[in-house]
Computed example of a mutant assay.
Amino acid sequence: MSPLERLTMNLTQRGAEALAKGAELTGDTKTDTVNRALQVYAYLEQLRTEGGTILIRRPGQDELEVINFL
């Protein structure tokens, strides 16, 4: 596999908005944002398949919330 792989994809409006928001928040390019998102997704899926639980704590709250991916 080469160091770069070209990908053509169609995004839903929600996906395109999420990509734009992610790039805006980080200052990364859309390409970098997609690459980072895929790495995070793969990591979270690996944790899930190994029986792990993904928890978040929202700002200003003490309780943890379980995150479920469909």
Rank of each mutant, 00 (worst) to 15 (best):
I56T: 05
D28M: 14
T33V: 09
R14V: 12
V34H: 09
N35R: 15
P59E: 07
R14N: 15
T8E: 08
I67G: 01
T12Y: 03
P3K: 11
E17L: 15
A37S: 14
L19H: 02
D28R: 11
N68S: 11
T31G: 02
S2Y: 07
L47N: 07
Y41D: 13
V34R: 04
L47H: 07
N68L: 13
E45G: 06
T31Y: 04
M9R: 05
P59D: 09
K21F: 12
Q46L: 13
N10Y: 12
V66E: 15
R57E: 14
L4E: 14
V40Q: 15
I56G: 09
N35L: 11
T53G: 01
G15C: 00
V34M: 11
Y41W: 13
G51S: 03
I67P: 03
R58Q: 08
I54P: 01
T26N: 07
R36S: 05
M9W: 06
V66M: 08
P59M: 10
L64V: 06
D62Q: 09
M1W: 01
A37I: 12
V40E: 15
M1N: 01
R6D: 01
L55V: 08
G60W: 06
I56Q: 06
F69Q: 03
G27N: 01
T8M: 04
R14S: 15
R48Y: 04
M1G: 08
T53D: 09
E24G: 07
R48L: 03
A18W: 05
L64S: 10
I56A: 06
G15A: 02
E5G: 05
T31L: 03
Q39W: 06
A20W: 00
Q39R: 08
Q61L: 12
L4M: 10
L55Y: 11
A18S: 05
N68K: 13
M9G: 11
Q13I: 08
I56F: 08
G51F: 08
N68Q: 15
G52E: 01
Y43E: 07
L47R: 11
L25G: 05
N10P: 01
Q46M: 13
G27R: 00
R57M: 08
L7M: 03
V34Q: 06
G51A: 07
V34E: 03
T31Q: 11
T29W: 04
Q39I: 12
L11R: 10
A23G: 05
T26L: 14
R14F: 14
L55E: 10
G27I: 00
R57Q: 14
A23L: 02
R36Y: 03
R57W: 07
A18P: 00
L25M: 09
L38E: 04
A20T: 08
K30E: 10
